[in-house]
């Protein structure tokens, strides 16, 4: 994880590699729960792959990552009810890169975020760090 972060950070300067940052961040911050391929875990953890929730809640996702999530949620017709922790350890731009990776992989084809937009959406939950 430390290594993944270090790699991700080291690549910050280069635009083409920045797309890769999303994948790296997913691997280090999300894969333990949502699975290496976004498949989720039985009825415990919802999938982010081909997720109708991801498609329908585009504007809420930055705050979902920042603040976490709890309570009943239905994803692709299956009901889940666990706790997802928040992520204070990611910058706004990292959240944007991470979500852009999720939004365009594993069967998701949703509109990407600009960093500016991610910061704005994060403002809704006082979750923007302006970076």
């Amino acid at each position: 994880m430390v290594l993944g972060l270090a790699v991700a950070l080291g690549l910050n300067g280069c635009f083409t590699e920045r797309r890769n940052e999303g994948a790296q961040l997913y691997a280090s911050h999300c894969a333990n729960c949502h699975g290496e391929q976004g498949q989720g875990l039985k009825r415990l953890i919802p999938p982010v792959a081909a997720s109708d929730y991801v498609a329908q809640h585009r504007a809420d996702l930055p705050c979902l990552i920042r603040k976490g999530m709890r309570g009943v949620v239905v994803v692709n017709g299956v009901e889940y009810n666990q706790v997802m922790p928040g992520h204070d350890d990611l910058t706004d731009s990292q959240i944007a890169n991470l979500l852009n990776f999720v939004q365009q992989n594993w069967g998701n084809k949703n509109q990407a975020y600009t960093i500016h937009e991610a910061s704005e959406l994060l403002g809704h939950c006082n979750g923007s760090d302006g970076q």
Binding site: A31, N32, C33, L41, L44, I45, Q82, V83, P85
Partner: peptide
């Protein structure tokens, strides 16, 4: 409610 390793471990 383990936030880190449990889902992977389980």
């Amino acid at each position: 409610t383990c936030p880190s390793i449990c889902p992977k471990m389980q």
